[in-house]
Design a protein around this nucleic acid. Structure first.
Lengths: 208, 208
DNA sequence: CCACTTGTCTACCATCTGGTAAGGGCCCTG
DNA sequence: CAGGGCCCTTACCAGATGGTAGACAAGTGG
């Protein structure tokens, strides 16, 4: 069967489940959920579709697992930043830079985020389950800062959502650029980061 | 059959073809190409799927027609602006405002644009066929302005692609906001427009 | 050594999909 | 009124899709 027979049955050659997860992330992020067939996905891994279903029960289950992993990656990166001791604006700056770093290191991750951000998309609900607490937490922090006079008063939620969609929009930008045959996409992405930081600063910095 | 029988055969009640086109635009833009089934689309219109295929030959044909219509709408709006006599920066400003106006009036249009901007997406190629000449035209104009010293020197193509993906990104933003239950989306979109204009101005205005 | 669990496979299925073939009502024109 | 084009329909199909059932190999623990 290509790779050399059934092998040791109990999860050898690098963890089938993890490999499926990676491939699914890439496929969902580029071809979309509907555009991904379990048969093709399995074939690409030298595996039968039923093996995928064994690990993830259903296609929806696979999507949920992928969403969970992505959310985990992102919140992990954010938590690591929050563990550092930055304050006020420095913290905002560090958070933004961290998210952009993750995004650049794993573009597929952004692709999935965009795919799943579409309303009525399966997985949108699942993603909200991860994002809502994060957003609420950030919102409370910002509002506390505003109350303490360390940040300027503004609509915290709208600010956060705007920042979020900027990040997701980076996925679109990367794809547009690649479609147009433009090579290294670093510069425009950095440009976006700069814009976002300026936007946040001009909205939050008490020194206008 | 629901709406009251076969009716006058020859295209009555508002033009079946146009109605299909509208519904397809909405469905492709929200559910995506793969996520749209001709049966469902037809059912939503009180029509049989074969009627759709009669008018558009195939699903791909339908997508192409939808892409063509969207491109037509956009280029039409742009041409109308270009017919006006603005010069230099005023022309850029008017073009950006025009595109954003169309985008706000027909959000579905943006949805499709985003869907189709995905590489490997069917329709991506078709869209490029419409966009490339537009882009080339804009690029030549900008470069002429730069040569004449009326605009600052910069990478025109990258600038245009960045502007384009900003507009497409608005679709993501609107969807994110709606998903979060935020009501009127006017303000953030205006914010994006402002950002884009500032970006263009700071890149192009010879008076730094 | 046997019972059990785990991971993968083969076989099969119901449903849905885009698409073809063919027919029929309606209008226009000769 | 006969013929043909236009619009939409019913009937049907081949292929792909997600999912179920069951077998089989290999490791694990008593």
């Amino acid at each position: 069967m290509g790779y050399g027979g059934p092998v040791a049955a109990t999860e050898v050659r690098g963890g089938t489940k993890a490999r499926v997860l990676d491939a699914a992330l890439a496929s969902f992020g580029t071809a979309g959920f509907d555009g991904t067939s379990l048969d093709d996905l399995a074939a690409g891994l030298g595996i039968r579709k039923q093996t995928i279903l064994y690990h993830f029960v259903s296609k929806r289950g696979l999507l949920n697992a992928v969403v969970d992993r992505v959310a985990e990656d992102l919140t992990g990166a954010l938590d690591r930043v929050l563990a550092g001791g930055q304050q006020d604006w420095e913290r905002v700056d560090a958070l933004v830079r961290s998210v952009f770093r993750v995004a650049l290191e794993q573009p597929v991750l952004l692709g999935l985020l965009r795919e799943v951000s579409r309303p009525n998309s399966p997985g949108a609900h699942r993603l909200r389950g991860h994002m809502d607490p994060l957003m609420a937490r950030a919102r409370l922090w910002i509002e506390a800062e505003m109350a303490a006079g360390r940040m300027r008063r503004t609509d915290a939620q709208l600010l956060l959502l705007s920042a979020y969609s900027t990040v997701v929009g980076v996925a679109t930008e990367i794809e547009v650029l690649r479609a147009a045959g433009v090579g290294p996409t670093l510069r425009p992405v950095v440009q976006r980061r700069k814009e976002l930081l300026r936007f946040l600063r001009s909205s939050l910095d008490p020194m206008s």
